[in-house]
């Protein structure tokens, strides 16, 4: 997929989201105008309006460039594997879905099961999985690190901050 195509899809998603918010999300989930001050929906409508306008403007720019058969800048034609470009805060490049799934699935599972099987087991299993995912094959090191980290955070939270850890309590 070229970068221009990918950007166009992103703009279309933003347009769709904005229209959905303007026609359903904001009207349904905003209190009615109380009769004084600005409408509770004003700022949210302005914010979504800006998103919609900017996304349409960007799509228009791409559309005009394609229609007039203007040469597309090199960086927008091809989509390199990993770009060092973008600002120092972004890292423009391909979305690595497999990688993303490797980290996100254990994280979401942690969220779902911690209330049932408790902090200790979930934290230990989560840390083992994450270490395996990022390439650690030293089992002894992984087990030791998982036990230490689980224990240290338990002690810090329970006795340092007095906050109960999530899920059923063992101690």
């Amino acid at each position: 997929m070229t970068r221009i195509k990918r950007d166009s899809i992103a703009y279309l998603v933003i347009v769709g989201f904005s229209i959905l918010m303007l026609t359903w999300g904001i009207p349904t989930y905003t209190p009615a105008y109380p009769g004084y001050g600005a409408s509770p929906a004003l700022v949210s409508n302005v914010a979504v309006g800006i998103m919609l306008f900017m996304a349409c403007l960007s799509l228009l720019r791409i559309g005009v460039a394609l229609y007039m058969n203007k040469p597309i800048p090199a960086e927008e034609r091809e989509f390199p594997e990993d770009l060092e470009e973008g600002s120092s805060f972004t890292q423009v490049g391909r979305v690595k879905l497999y990688h993303l799934a490797n980290i996100m699935i254990p994280s979401v599972l942690l969220l779902l099961v911690i209330d049932y099987i408790g902090y200790m087991l979930t934290a230990f299993a989560f840390l083992m999985v994450i270490q395996h995912v990022i390439g650690s094959r030293k089992w002894f090191q992984s087990v030791v690190l998982s036990i230490i980290l689980t224990g240290v955070l338990y002690i810090v939270m329970r006795y340092g901050f007095g906050v109960p850890v999530p899920g059923p309590q063992i101690f």
């Binding site: 914010a47 800006i50 998103m51 900017m54 600002s87 972004t90």
Partner: peptide, 15 residues
Amino acid sequence: IGTNSINRGLMAAAF
């Protein structure tokens, strides 16, 4: 800040 495009910057701020 943090992007090469003011369009995308404004969209992010609005979001």
